[in-house]
Write a protein that binds this DNA or RNA. Sequence first.
DNA 1: TTAGTGTGTAACTGAGTAGTTATATAGTTG
DNA 2: CAACTATATAACTACTCAGTTACACACTAA
Lengths: 112, 112
Amino acid sequence: MAQVLPHPLTPEYARSVADRFRLLGDPTRLRLIDLLRDGERTVGSLAVELGCTQANTSKQLALLADAGLLARRREGLRCYYSIADAAVFDLCDAVCNSVLQHLDARVIALRA
Amino acid sequence: MAQVLPHPLTPEYARSVADRFRLLGDPTRLRLIDLLRDGERTVGSLAVELGCTQANTSKQLALLADAGLLARRREGLRCYYSIADAAVFDLCDAVCNSVLQHLDARVIALRA
DNA sequence: TTAGTGTGTAACTGAGTAGTTATATAGTTG
DNA sequence: CAACTATATAACTACTCAGTTACACACTAA
């Protein structure tokens, strides 16, 4: 796809793009997104599987939802979160490939 | 491309991927990458155009180079940096599109 | 040699934020 | 009504890190 942002990149645009990258730059949030690949989940269910507190899980989910990456659906007491923009998977996969491409001692160590 | 990482994502892998996202989650580093679209540049030249100190520019370039995204070439006193992995442009463009897709008041304000 | 230039780096500071604890809110059940 | 459950949020702590300042290092030029 064609370049849509100004070049050179203005500080304002750079900040917007950086914000989005930083939103995905947290292990817990990435794991939340990954768990939601299989479909919507409740906050409590996600918290248990991640081993995080309910409070932290809720906070991270809210950050992702505020950015438009996740959708919320309340059903009684429970709140179901799901992926709102499937393009996030393409982003993650692209970065994963980028990371794996630079195969070094660190990644090899992770496989041990 | 097929999914290569474990699912559910382990904390270790999530951290690796998050590190890469966070590396791109800084406006200054994004602007450096953007400036290098046109070819290799010296540290001083980039610092002037960004309005950053030479020290900070050097540090951010080093972070990108250590991650394998940039390449270095010394020539006398000067040091030329260039893009080592052009895939980074695809990543940035993908995020840019993702950001622009969620058109909201903030982006509109940026256009004013 | 000395002076000057381009780059890298160590130490520090301040801002941002992930995670925790405690509490608030809202819905359910008896 | 009261007790319980699921989620959200406020306040706080601890850590990370972008940016600065000062300096070191390496190369050039006189």
